[in-house]
Design a protein around this nucleic acid. Structure first.
Length: 456
DNA sequence: TCTAATT
């Protein structure tokens, strides 16, 4: 535990070296929270504040933090789509040493009303220099505490942070995060400790690796989401990346959607704040409970509203999940058909339009090179529709085709999906390659380009 | 076995 304070000591030393007078305690009248107020030190530290009750806003928090010095800026983090309080904030004091005092006095020292864990007050991620220095430690035994982990890692450098992951009941999940003060130290620890020993009761040897980056976490979440729901959206004809507004909106809706998964919407269900409407959900880990319609569409499922949006309804009525974002919550969208379908805004391109080449029989099954994916290990039940839905989140699909055995009319468990741009294809590979469905893992890679030297 | 949250 002792070394945990070393980096803090370093910071305080640095602070002692600085000569500029700081206006600690000289707080005067200030504008409402969030607005930069006056001057701040050149070397001011932006603090991240976590474990804030969601009912407290800037003005509620100000008194707590003002006692350590004049606040330059205090911003509660809100979700950009829902405006929802994220339970954390950024705080910058005018004076650097106010930040240090606040961190010393508050970090892990006090628990705000209604919070299960103590308040967090520490330099924001944006303040930290130096690349990867945070490790994920797996295959610990569940009795090992932070102190035990610390002992294990101390020999390799200065540890800024050490957290054992715990469930709501406080029991260890058998893994931890350890943050070193430098990448080099972290690397040394990996070298020395990864696989070096097996903790009593653990099923395999100790895992020590760099923790997932945000990007990796995002992808993992997307995988989970796609796996659990399947996704349908008409707005994906717009330029799209995994971090676009749509993807973020989806992720933040995940909880909401999951909470109702397995049941179909009844008409008139309330719209969520960011206008995402769940129109039905089904677990995809297990495939849809109801048999999927033949991929060819030869036996169309019952259609409702098909006059208004020809070609659009079929993908939805197969029992797959649908999540449809509506930018701007148009009043007309409040209509929900009896089968849970929702009409699309007329001005938006429909899925039918998006998929036109594939649905109209035009022989355009490939996009430009780098845009075409080969997908193997598809579930037997997957048809074109399911393939399309599975890859819709990643971009604008020009075509998608599951290959069928001519004799048996059964899927050959592989297919092709073409996007209109290489970035979407790459995104889809990142997110879906190795994605587990049932017992199998999808193989998603670029389709081999036709070798121009060997036209036949 | 990848956090509760990082504009």
């Amino acid at each position: 535990m002792a070394r945990l304070t070393e980096s803090e000591a370093r910071r305080q030393q640095q602070q002692l070296l600085q000569t500029r007078p700081s206006p600690v305690g000289s707080s005067g009248p200030e504008p409402p929270g969030g607005q930069p107020d006056g001057m701040k030190d050149l070397d001011a530290i932006k603090l991240f504040v976590g474990q804030i009750p969601r009912n407290l806003d800037e003005k509620d928090l100000k008194p707590l933090f003002e006692q350590f010095g004049r606040i330059y800026e205090l911003t509660v983090l809100k979700d950009p789509y829902t405006g929802m309080h994220k339970g954390c904030a950024f705080l910058t004091y005018c004076a650097r040493d106010s930040a240090i005092k606040a961190q010393t006095a508050l970090h892990e020292q006090k628990t705000l009303p209604g919070m299960a864990r103590p308040i967090q007050v520490k330099p924001a991620d944006s303040e930290s220099r130096g690349g990867d220095r945070k490790l994920f430690v797996g295959m610990l035994n569940k009795q090992q505490s932070e102190e035990d982990v610390l002992r294990l890692f101390q020999p390799f450098g200065v540890i800024d942070e050490c957290t054992v992951l715990r469930g709501p009941d406080g029991s260890s999940k058998g893994c931890a995060f350890v943050k070193f003060s430098s990448h080099t130290e972290a690397q040394a620890a990996i070298h020395a400790l990864h696989g070096s020993q097996t903790m009593p009761g653990a099923s395999s040897s100790l895992v020590v690796k760099f923790a997932d980056t945000d990007k990796e976490r995002t992808l993992r979440r997307m995988q989970q989401m796609v796996g659990q729901l399947g996704i349908l959206t008409p707005s994906l004809t717009l330029p799209f990346s995994p971090y676009s507004a749509y993807a973020q909106a989806l992720m933040q809706q995940q909880t909401t959607v999951l909470s109702t998964s397995g049941s179909y919407l009844s008409p008139g269900v309330a719209f969520s704040p960011c206008h995402i409407q769940q129109i039905g959900a089904v677990s995809l880990n297990g495939l849809p409970a109801t048999p999927i319609a033949p991929a060819s569409g030869l036996h169309s499922p019952p259609l409702l509203g098909s006059t208004a949006v020809p070609g659009l309804v079929a993908p939805i009525t197969n029992g797959f999940a649908g999540v449809v974002p509506f930018p701007g919550g148009h009043p007309a969208l409040e209509t929900v058909y009896a089968n849970g379908l929702v009409p699309y805004p007329a001005q938006s391109p429909t899925v039918a339009e998006t998929l036109h080449p594939a649905f109209s029989g035009v022989q355009q099954y490939t996009g430009p090179e780098g845009c075409n994916l080969f997908i193997y290990h598809l579930p037997q039940e997957f048809g074109d529709t399911e393939l399309t839905q599975m890859f819709l989140p990643f971009g604008n699909i020009i075509s998608s085709k599951v290959f069928m055995d001519r004799a048996t009319n059964q899927s050959k468990c592989f297919g092709f999906v073409s996007f209109d741009n290489p970035a979407s294809a790459q995104t889809a590979i990142q997110a879906m390659n190795g994605f587990q469905i049932g017992m199998k893992r999808l193989k998603v890679q670029l389709k081999r380009p036709k070798d121009p030297g060997h036209p036949y």
